[in-house]
């Protein structure tokens, strides 16, 4: 059985769906002959033809805009936006059209669209190539927002996203693309959307994170374990709609929660989770909820990006704070 990395898992899922369902088409910049700047679509145009793996002109608005028209007319488009920093020209189409076509027509038309886009920092990329826009997207009613954190979850969640009858934003953490390999069986088995995955059980506190930050979060859990502290680690995976019951159930057992995300703090999804814990889980909390996030600064260029990204040390410090609180 082959061990593959996250970007290869994305490729595997796309190939599986292209072979399984002729309504599936891919479109985006450089995804065909070049196989995508991260190689996510490598070999797919050669296998499935230029009609189904479409190199588009360089215009993000129209990549998403045309994908909406395709989706409404029976195709299942998977659009790639080369970097999430270039997603913004397409926001109008996502917010005003993709997210509400079903509702506007009371179910007459639908938009089974996936927009894949790399996100996050940590790969020493140029300006605008390290964005974390998940909270902006999650604030939009009608959009699903999904972020995998391992090759297996990338494969299973992408299958689920493509098969979902509604629009899904599929944010792929670039730093994870080649970070590690994992056995992935190409069995066409989708993972469920709208649920968190508990990556490790624990009894003393709950660490909640998603995407690339799970790498640091897991390392923090290891560091805490070395001190005899047992941290549960939850991968939120589907950021909207949020599987709050899994988080509440965990915090009910541990009494402590640290939320870790790379995106800027204010109005980030950490705030949503913390507020939900305050509303529905306050009496099980033994300490104030902590957030470890990117700062409310512009994402710095590469020389400072690791000053911006939450570190293992910051996560461990926040965990200690919750443990010292009572």
């Amino acid at each position: 059985m082959a061990e593959i990395n996250l970007v290869e898992a994305v490729n595997l899922a796309l190939a599986h769906e292209l072979a399984r369902d002729e309504a599936v088409v891919l479109l985006g910049e450089d995804i065909g002959a070049n196989g995508g700047v991260f190689r996510a679509t490598a070999g797919l145009q050669q296998r499935f033809g230029a009609g189904r793996v479409v190199d588009t002109p360089l215009a993000e608005t129209a990549i998403v805009g045309t994908a909406i028209g395709m989706a409404a007319m029976g195709l299942k488009p998977v659009a790639e936006i080369q970097f999430s920093g270039f997603l913004y020209p397409a926001i109008d189409h996502l917010v005003n059209h993709a997210a509400r076509l079903r509702n506007r027509t009371r179910g007459r038309l639908a938009c089974p669209l996936v927009v894949r886009t790399p996100c996050g920092g940590g790969i020493h990329a140029p300006e605008h190539h390290s964005e974390s826009p998940e909270a902006m997207l999650a604030h939009t009613p009608g959009l699903r927002v999904v972020m995998p954190s391992s090759p297996a979850r990338a494969y299973g969640l992408l299958l689920a996203a493509i098969r979902d009858p509604d629009p899904v934003m599929f944010l792929e953490p670039t730093r994870m693309y080649r970070l590690f390999r994992q056995e992935v069986v190409d069995d066409g088995e989708a993972l469920p959307l709208d649920v968190c995955f508990t990556l490790r059980g624990g009894t003393d506190l709950t660490l909640v994170s998603w995407g690339a930050m799970l790498h640091e979060t897991q390392a923090a859990a290891d560091a805490l374990a070395a001190e005899g502290i047992s941290a549960e680690v939850i991968d939120v995976a589907t950021l909207k709609p949020l599987d709050l019951p899994t988080i509440l159930e965990s915090v009910a057992r541990t009494g402590r929660c640290v939320i870790v995300h790379e995106a800027a703090r204010t109005a980030g999804l950490g705030a949503e989770i913390a507020a939900s814990l305050a509303e529905e889980g306050l009496y099980s909390l033994l300490a104030p909820v902590q957030r470890v996030t990117g700062y409310d600064t512009v994402m710095p260029l590469s020389r400072l990006e690791y000053q911006y990204l939450p570190s293992v040390e910051r996560i461990v410090a926040a965990a200690r704070k919750t443990l010292e609180a009572s």
Partner: peptide
């Protein structure tokens, strides 16, 4: 049943129509 509803944001429907036309051509 296949017609889009009124489009209030200006001009966006040109992209939707182009995508629909692509779907027709592909099939």
């Amino acid at each position: 049943r296949h017609d889009f509803p009124n489009c209030v944001p200006i001009g966006t429907q040109v992209c939707h129509a182009a995508g629909a036309a692509y779907a027709f051509r592909l099939r």
